Amino acid sequence: GELMDVRDGYLYLVAVDGFRISMRRTKVQSDQNFKVTVPGKALTEINKILETEEDSVATISFTGKHALFTMNNTIVLTRLLEGQFLNYQRNLSMDFSSKVIVDKQELLDSVDRAALISRESKNSPIRLDIQDKTMLITSNAENGTAHEEVPIELEGNGLTIAFNPKYYLDALKAVSDEKIEILYSSALTPCIIQATEGEDYKYFILPIRLHN
């Protein structure tokens, strides 16, 4: 399920799995603060409806253990999930010692090309060597090795860190901004990918341990 956290005039939509947390923030009209967990499949269907509607505005109401989404002539009723949702705010507000600023599309294209090699080997991560002005992206598999290089701005210390290429690409594809920030502290602790301005998107992702 996905968390809908409404507070102070914003909707925070949060999805989690064992390796990552995705948070998207958008303004809403609401005089109440509340949290509910909605099945992910229902939200996927609602998103498809909104993409086909000219007036992409949804009204959400709650009836006991259900949520009612009204979009023009379409109404979707879905049950709410019970149980405690992960404290995502604690994870997304961690302190980080270093920050990379990079062109999102350039990084996305480079990681995508490097990931072509790793796709042939299910357990092959992409490796990021973060240096003063450059990020070196490499991927090794039985069928070859890929090398990419992207210019960056670095605040803090460089390091070498590795990720599941699919998870990393998912994070980059979800951001619409031209520039992004990558926050990290070490090769074994999570990093956060977010826009350089505003708090509308955060993606928390766990790295993969590199074996020498």
Rank of each mutant, 00 (worst) to 15 (best):
P39Y: 08
K35T: 07
Q32W: 05
N47I: 08
E149F: 03
L50D: 00
F69D: 02
L108C: 00
Y184W: 10
L50H: 05
T26F: 07
F163T: 14
K173E: 11
V38T: 03
I117F: 13
N157G: 06
Q105M: 11
L108V: 02
I180H: 11
R209W: 01
E155L: 11
F19Y: 13
Y168D: 04
D200F: 06
N72T: 14
I117Q: 06
A58H: 02
D200N: 15
G156D: 12
M23W: 05
F85M: 11
R119T: 10
F62K: 02
L159G: 07
L210F: 09
I205E: 05
S97H: 03
L188G: 06
E148V: 00
T26L: 15
Q89H: 08
G18C: 06
V150Q: 09
F69C: 02
M23N: 04
E2F: 09
K99L: 10
D170L: 07
F96E: 07
T44W: 01
L3S: 07
K122T: 11
D132H: 12
M71K: 07
I193Y: 06
T160D: 01
F69N: 03
V14F: 12
G83V: 09
M4Q: 09
Q84E: 15
I60F: 02
S139F: 09
L136W: 07
T26Y: 04
P151Y: 07
P207V: 12
F163M: 12
K41W: 01
I130D: 03
F85H: 13
I21Y: 12
S97A: 10
I126K: 03
D129G: 08
S22P: 04
V175P: 03
I101V: 15
G83P: 10
E54I: 10
V28C: 02
I182K: 02
I180L: 15
E155S: 15
S56L: 04
A67L: 02
I126S: 05
A115L: 00
R90D: 14
L92G: 05
F62R: 11
M135C: 14
P151K: 05
D5S: 05
V28G: 01
L92A: 04
D129C: 05
P207M: 11
I46C: 00
I161Y: 08
A115E: 00
Y88H: 12
E142C: 05
A195R: 14
V175F: 10
R24K: 14
T63Y: 01
R113I: 03
E53Y: 09
S121A: 10
M4V: 08
K65T: 14
Y203I: 07
D95K: 15
S97R: 08
K122F: 08
G64L: 09
L43F: 05
D200L: 08
D109K: 13
G198E: 10
I205L: 15
A15K: 09
S56T: 06
T63E: 15
I60Q: 00
S186L: 04
T145I: 15
N157S: 15
G158D: 10
T59W: 06
K99H: 04
A171S: 15
V28A: 00
S110V: 02
A174W: 08
T78F: 03
D17T: 10
L169P: 03
E106T: 12
I49F: 02
L68G: 00
I21N: 12
L172T: 08
A174V: 06
I180T: 09
T59Q: 14
V111A: 05
T145Y: 06
N143Q: 12
S56F: 03
